[in-house]
Amino acid sequence: MGRVTIITGEIDAGKTTELIRLYSELPAGTADGFASIKAFSKQGAFEGYDLKRLATGTTAPFIRLSKDDEVPPQQESFGFDRFTFLREPLAATEDVIRDIISDPAIRTILLDEIGPVELQGNGFCSALKSLLESEKDLYLCINRKNLDPVAKKFGIVTYRLVVVEDQTFLSQ
């Protein structure tokens, strides 16, 4: 396992913003990863999250608010809390992460939104296990309430902690 940095804070504190800022400070061509970016309708209503690959800037729909009258088809998605997770972007992301791990030029990998979905064995669970088995340095965003359970489940014992509070970034 390489060095692990965990970016933590409450909901909407700015963890993703900090992840992207830290990515921008890394030497070009040495880092890659994914951020979960809020998605809004044309009318400005929150719809869910898109997955953004940091090295290319490409985005794909990833998580959407579940609609009360819709049951997501199990082959294409799964529900968690008030959200529907799309399986295709998850599978594609896992493929890309495997490629990133095998790329000798990439020394640092960043992954946003590790939490209760991964604790249940879904989402980025498999990708996170592969990342932790690699020698790559990792930056992970984990909500404060999920920090200890995630660290325990995935055997993350030693890590640097970056605490984000209301868009004010504090390093510990």
Rank of each mutant, 00 (worst) to 15 (best):
L51G: 06
T59F: 03
Y139N: 10
F85R: 03
T5S: 14
T58V: 11
D32G: 07
D103V: 08
T58M: 11
L22H: 10
K15E: 02
T8E: 05
V117E: 01
I63A: 06
E47I: 00
A92V: 12
L147K: 04
F34L: 13
L54Y: 04
S77V: 04
K129H: 09
L140Y: 08
S36I: 00
G123Q: 02
P61Q: 05
G29W: 01
I142N: 01
T16Y: 00
R82W: 06
T59W: 01
F34W: 13
K38W: 00
L147V: 09
E76C: 08
D95G: 11
L119M: 05
R144F: 06
Y49M: 01
D81W: 10
F124N: 12
L19F: 01
G14V: 10
R82C: 08
S24L: 01
Q120L: 12
I20G: 07
K42Y: 00
G48H: 00
V71A: 13
V164Q: 02
Y49E: 02
F124Y: 15
Y139D: 06
L170Q: 14
F78M: 03
P104A: 05
P72H: 01
A39Q: 15
L54C: 04
S102L: 11
D95L: 11
A151S: 15
L131Q: 07
L26Q: 15
R160I: 09
P89L: 03
F85E: 03
T108N: 10
V162H: 07
A39T: 15
V163W: 07
A13Q: 13
Y139L: 14
R87V: 14
